Amino acid sequence: MSVVAFERKSATGAWSESELNTIVAALNAALGPAKGREWETGATESGDAQFYLLDSLPDQACELCVSRIGGRYILEDGSGRLLFEHRSLPLVAQHARAAVSSRSWSLVARLVLLSFTVRHTIQEKVEPLLIEGEELLVHVAPQLAIFA
């Protein structure tokens, strides 16, 4: 048996300057000292290029990841869920911008939901206890007045 040596593909782990400019321009509103976010590049185990949008210090958790694998650009969130995939980097960058801006609105929605939950809990659990205490005082007050 003979072994045929196939030519290996060269690693494509480096972003071109135009690709980086496209991604950074799309995410420009999410980056900067005011937001505290930063970006970093890397490579997959296979050597494919990756772009990471990192949260603010000290955690610097990955919020978004854009990967270039075999001519396709793949957008994932920080949990590794696929958000979008296409051959056009500007289109993927637009979806990345939308994903970052929707993330802040989801935080606002969570805070509003939390405030409604706290208010509902107070109305359902605490107010009945206060009303029962008033009723008890109304029934016991005449008996206590005898001792006064």
Rank of each mutant, 00 (worst) to 15 (best):
S2T: 13
S2P: 15
V3T: 12
V3E: 09
V3C: 14
V4D: 14
V4C: 14
V4Q: 15
E7C: 09
E7T: 12
R8D: 10
K9S: 10
A11M: 13
T12P: 04
T12I: 05
T12R: 15
T12M: 13
E17Q: 09
S18M: 08
E19M: 07
L20K: 12
L20I: 08
L20N: 04
V24C: 01
A25T: 13
A25W: 01
A26I: 00
L27G: 04
N28F: 01
A29N: 03
A30H: 04
G32I: 02
G32E: 10
G32Q: 05
P33E: 05
A34I: 04
E38H: 05
W39M: 04
A43I: 00
A43V: 06
E45Q: 07
S46A: 09
S46G: 09
G47N: 04
G47L: 02
G47M: 07
D48K: 10
A49T: 07
Y52P: 01
L53K: 02
L54E: 07
S56I: 05
D59M: 06
D59K: 12
A61L: 15
E63Y: 03
E63G: 03
R68F: 05
I69E: 15
G70I: 04
G70L: 11
G71H: 14
R72M: 14
I74K: 13
L75Y: 03
G78F: 15
G78Y: 15
S79E: 14
G80S: 14
G80Q: 14
L83S: 13
F84P: 07
F84Y: 15
H86A: 10
S88H: 01
L89E: 06
P90N: 11
L91P: 00
A93Y: 00
A93P: 01
A93T: 02
A93H: 03
Q94F: 04
Q94E: 13
R103W: 09
W105F: 12
L107E: 10
F116S: 10
T117A: 14
V118M: 04
I122C: 05
Q123Y: 05
E124N: 10
E127C: 00
P128F: 04
P128G: 01
L129T: 03
L130N: 08
L130P: 07
I131W: 13
I131G: 09
I131F: 11
E132G: 11
E132I: 08
E132W: 09
E132Q: 15
G133W: 05
E134W: 10
E135Y: 11
E135A: 12
V140W: 04
V140Y: 02
P142T: 10
A145W: 04
F147R: 08
F147P: 01
A148M: 07
A148N: 13
